[in-house]
Design a binder for these strands. Sequence first.
DNA 1: TTGATATCATTTGCATACGAATGAATTTAC
DNA 2: GTAAATTCATTCGTATGCAAATGATATCAA
Lengths: 153, 153
Amino acid sequence: MSGEDNLLKLVEAEEADDHDYLLQEQVGFILRKAHQRHVSIFAARIADLTPPQFAALAKLRDVGETSQNQLGTLIAMDAATVKGVIDRLKARGLVELSRHEVDKRRLLVNLTAEGRDAIERLIPLAREITQETLAPLTNKEIATFMKLLAKLA
Amino acid sequence: MSGEDNLLKLVEAEEADDHDYLLQEQVGFILRKAHQRHVSIFAARIADLTPPQFAALAKLRDVGETSQNQLGTLIAMDAATVKGVIDRLKARGLVELSRHEVDKRRLLVNLTAEGRDAIERLIPLAREITQETLAPLTNKEIATFMKLLAKLA
DNA sequence: TTGATATCATTTGCATACGAATGAATTTAC
DNA sequence: GTAAATTCATTCGTATGCAAATGATATCAA
């Protein structure tokens, strides 16, 4: 029996023997590998920033000053994770922090001039990263894939 | 202009103004979110094991005793990462380690009886995790998606 | 055979990622 | 108006994930 038959079997929820559970056909495993490949492509093109750091800068460019928590929501990071990311961007002078004047719980984050320069400079590279990540697909496949992937995210 | 128009624009490599770079349309960002969602589904169904730990056990079940390095290759983990995963499985008595008799560099990893019981018990849950992860798609969409995702991984 | 390479594993350092607990500030409910 | 609940941020602990450096062993090549 071929791997594709196994996939079909699983999809159709037919009986599947426990002894032919194949890790390499599970969506979670392949999703993890696809993500790894993307991160590797990213690192090759943008060496001095990680994808989460880039995401924070790109989103700040998009929405302007926001609270750390709100930024985390926008880029799908929990509070603990976003704190680390912002701390490191701050240490490098790419963002600046301030307290919200009315709601004193909130920590406002904004791009510095240097941070704005950096993100503007990096966006063309990010477009190339997207292209390279999707390079194994035709344009038509890309459109299909992005539509389906979005449903899973 | 709609988001889909932006996507189309990007796919077709037409000119794209730098001021409308949208993070939430980039494949890397959505891939990261889809992966996060899968991990969350996994944790809800299998609380006492992480996806990488499960992958190690499932692959050992598949191939039998192997070197730590080889196992890492099979489950797409570098040497440093796989060491941590195996150490934790060993601490819980799910795998056992031994030295290769001929090649003394190699550290052989194998399931214990307890490890084998665990993975056999978990495989049905893993099938459910796959199903739930893919639940937003129809069967036809699943087949398409898995085919395209595999090309990117 | 021995010197250069390559492989296997380990360790260190850094960066996500998230659950859980905590404290401060705000909002809601009554 | 106050007590309860919620929100925002921080901290801690654990677990990937990977680059780089190191040491031990094995293989290759001259």
